Simulated assay, not measured.
Amino acid sequence: MTMNKLTVLPTETEILLPAGCPLTEVEYETPQRLIPFGCRSGSCGACVIQVLEGFGSLGEPDDDERDFLEDLGRTTGDHRLACQCRLRGDATIRVADDI
């Protein structure tokens, strides 16, 4: 099984997850609440992350996710809703509210 590394800043926590694993699994891999998941359906915005490295490793955002991020004012193109991402390669992220 291929494992990919997700690095979460600012704590620099590294988590190994199976390829294709949803980022919602992060909360089961560490006792810390690294990403504040809310609805898990892409409609609350609690889990907005900034992707610092490996944007393509999280899959492509669909139009609904892009529109919602724009509504939230996250228009730089490096933000995602963590609940909508699946890890397909190594990536480094930061929870957007920690910026």
Rank of each mutant, 00 (worst) to 15 (best):
K5F: 00
L6K: 06
L6V: 04
T7I: 10
T7Q: 04
V8G: 08
V8R: 04
P10R: 09
P10F: 09
T11G: 01
T11M: 05
T13R: 13
E14S: 02
E14A: 04
E14P: 04
E14M: 05
E14T: 03
I15V: 08
I15R: 03
L16E: 14
L16G: 07
L16S: 14
L16T: 00
L17G: 01
L17S: 08
P18W: 11
P18S: 14
P18R: 14
A19C: 10
A19D: 15
G20L: 02
G20A: 04
G20M: 08
P22G: 11
L23T: 09
E25K: 15
V26T: 12
V26A: 07
V26L: 08
V26K: 10
E27P: 03
Y28T: 14
E29A: 15
E29G: 04
E29C: 13
E29I: 07
T30H: 14
P31A: 09
R33E: 15
I35G: 02
I35N: 00
P36A: 02
P36E: 01
F37G: 05
G38E: 07
C39F: 06
C39N: 12
R40Y: 05
R40W: 04
S41F: 06
G42T: 07
S43K: 11
C44T: 12
G45F: 06
A46V: 06
C47D: 13
C47P: 02
V48F: 04
Q50T: 11
V51T: 02
V51F: 08
L52N: 11
L52D: 15
L52C: 03
L52H: 01
G54V: 03
G54T: 03
F55P: 00
F55E: 05
F55V: 00
G56Y: 00
G56W: 04
